[in-house]
């Protein structure tokens, strides 16, 4: 069953220099119980997608076009009140614990409790308590730490508490925005395991946003690679990471060092990301692309089907040329 269907979504920020097209005409779908990962460099629009799906865009940001169908309703046309009832209940978000994601002056259990309370106003108090205990059990936080303040938690515990918070109302979709960034490798591994278990156990869909390819590859079945506000390649995890076709995906993977890779492998140099205020209409990646033709600068790329599940936003010429080398 399709849970989320995003069609031709564009999101822009009004800035002093003009409209910044942070997300430009993207489409993707997500099935119930599946996980989708967004990878890309900073500023490529990953977080903007997450915030759009939560209705948490800042005041100067707007959905310029497109539709977001979630379980039959179009989120693009939600008003404040609808969003308020929706957030945390249907879609919830796992934030980065390294940020100040928890209120420093409110006890941790209280912060989870209020998430349940607001969407279940009739639930009796003791039932909420039981539910909170269950949630903390699930994320393996000992019960005697429930009444602590966030600063008394370690980074990993904070991240677990934030996951518990996101699970409070059994959402159908969880958006995890860089949930393991700034955690050490062991804790990161534990958190990822937890997220995978939750996904399996509760049949929750997950959108995973990260700049870390390894993390995304670990959790997600489907991958979208983003560059300059656009999805440049999407497909199954194996397809995208084993047989990358878009020049940017290749660059991204090549720059990810690994022990047995050739030391002298040449990582193509990436120019600075495109200016999203003055888009030329051509390919956003053309400035850094190793195989660009003259056409790429002025002609918009198009979706090329590489397999039924694997597509790249490029041009036949480049993809074809590339195949040979």
């Amino acid at each position: 069953m399709t849970l989320l269907k995003v069609e031709n979504l564009s999101v822009g920020y009004k800035t002093k220099k003009g409209l910044l097209n942070a997300v430009n005409n993207i489409s993707f779908t997500l099935e119930q119980g599946k996980s989708l990962g967004f990878v890309g460099e900073s500023g490529c629009g990953k977080t903007t997608i997450g915030m759009t799906l939560m209705g948490l865009l800042p005041e100067n940001a707007n959905i310029l076009q497109g539709d977001i169908y979630f379980n039959g309703s179009n989120l693009a046309h939600f008003n404040d009140e609808k969003w308020r009832n929706f957030r945390g209940k249907e879609i919830s978000m796992i934030f980065q614990a390294a940020m100040n994601a928890m209120n420093p002056v409110i006890r941790v259990d209280e912060q989870v409790m209020e998430a349940i309370e607001v969407h279940n106003p009739d639930m009796p108090r003791n039932e909420i308590h039981t539910k909170v205990k269950k949630l903390f059990n699930m994320v393996e936080i000992p019960e005697n730490r429930l009444k602590d303040y966030p600063h008394q938690y370690s980074g990993g515990m904070k991240q677990r508490a934030i996951i518990a918070m996101a699970l409070a109302c059994n959402p159908k979709l969880i958006i995890a925005d860089e949930p393991t960034t700034a955690l050490d490798a062991i804790v990161q591994d534990q958190i990822l395991k937890e997220i995978k278990e939750i996904k399996k156990g509760l049949n929750t869909s997950i959108i995973f946003i990260s700049h870390d390819i390894a993390v995304v590859a670990d959790v997600c079945e489907d991958i979208c690679v983003m560059y300059g506000g656009q999805i440049v390649e999407k497909g199954k995890r194996e397809e995208v990471f084993k047989y990358p076709r878009h020049p940017y995906t290749k660059t991204l993977l090549a720059s990810y060092l690994n022990l047995d890779s050739d030391k002298d492998i040449k990582v193509p140099e990436i120019q600075k990301p495109p200016n999203l205020i003055t888009l030329t209409g051509g390919c956003n990646f053309s400035a850094s692309c190793i195989c660009k033709s003259k056409n790429c600068i002025n002609h918009a790329p198009e979706w090329v089907n590489l397999s039924p599940t694997h597509q790249a936003f490029c041009c036949e010429e480049t993809l074809g040329k590339d195949k040979n080398d």
Partner: peptide, 17 residues
């Protein structure tokens, strides 16, 4: 501007809260 305000919004809390 703090992150925990976004968290609070993401939970669907009322403006007053």
């Amino acid at each position: 501007k703090e992150d925990y305000i976004i968290t609070a919004k993401a939970k669907g809390l009322t403006e007053k809260s």
